[in-house]
């Protein structure tokens, strides 16, 4: 399958995005903000449909919308994990606007399906480069703030007492999260972002009680799922996002069953 340029592009793009998603997801779960991640992906849908309507690339719209929403959520300061009603209302409105934008777009159905469920095989060379660059920048950012993000996630009050602003760290982290989500939406679609963002991270947290092991395991599992999904899709002819969702779920269930017991 590596003879086909579209498959090479897909493997590269999915690889970069899944590694970032695995890492970001591990921290996102620690901060109990999985629902915020879900909401960001829906806001991304609105951004993408808006961009398409304006004749811009969907990825640009995706990223601008998720980044803006991520920064706004982080700017709320207090931990957003418990604000699920407000987040739910905003994401519903975002989806409503997404539909509104699609209404004015002529090739309605195909575009909607691609945004909702992903279209990784349509990723061209320019998009691969853009995604890889964005992921590298985000990984570098995460490497820089990893330690304070971990501290603030586990001991929010002590971190604040040590001079870490919960707002600054929340905004920085959710900005990185927004890029990961926009990337994942490009690969598996906005509805299946959890398959790369949450599934592998949750499996890693079941399997290991160590930070270091978890931060290696989560991106490795995410990468494995993404590439296994692409391979299965290539040989079966069935949708790749379907396979990634299946592998993500199986990994999660297996990890839950294999969760090591206490000595």
């Amino acid at each position: 399958m590596l003879h086909y340029a579209f498959m090479v592009h897909a493997l590269l793009a999915a690889g970069a995005v899944s590694v970032l998603c695995g890492l970001v997801g591990w921290f996102l779960l620690l901060r109990a903000e999985a629902f915020a991640g879900h909401a960001l992906s829906h806001v991304g849908f609105t951004g993408a449909t808006g961009a398409v309507l304006l004749g811009l690339p969907p990825l640009a719209g995706l990223i601008s919308a998720t980044l803006a929403a991520g920064l706004a959520m982080g700017g709320l300061g207090a931990r957003i994990g418990r604000r699920d009603v407000a987040i739910g209302m905003v994401l519903s409105l975002a989806l409503g606007f997404g539909l509104f934008f699609l209404h004015f777009y002529t090739s309605y159905a195909a575009q909607a399906t691609a945004l909702l469920f992903g279209n990784v095989l349509a990723v061209d060379r320019a998009t691969v480069l853009a995604l890889t660059g964005l992921c590298l920048v985000s990984l570098a950012g995460l490497a820089l703030i990893g330690r304070p993000v971990l501290f603030a996630a586990i001991h929010p009050e002590i971190a604040e007492a040590r001079g870490i602003s919960p707002r600054a760290i929340g905004m920085a982290f959710l900005a990185i999260c927004a890029i990961a989500i926009a990337g994942a939406a490009e690969i598996v679609g906005v509805l299946l972002v959890f398959t790369l963002l949450i599934g592998p991270a949750a499996a890693a947290q079941s399997l290991s009680r160590r930070v270091t092991v978890g931060l290696v395991l989560a991106p490795v599992l995410a990468l494995g799922q993404a590439w296994a999904g692409l391979t299965a899709g290539f040989y079966s002819g069935w949708p790749i996002s379907f396979w990634i969702a299946v592998f993500s779920f199986l990994t999660y269930v297996l990890a839950t069953m294999l969760r090591p017991t206490e000595p």
Binding site: P148, L150, F151, I164
Partner: peptide, 15 residues
């Protein structure tokens, strides 16, 4: 790991 998260946790860098 819970204890370690607070060790110089305000410095930048990898955990």
């Amino acid at each position: 790991d819970v204890v370690a998260a607070g060790a110089a946790g305000n410095r930048l860098g990898l955990p």
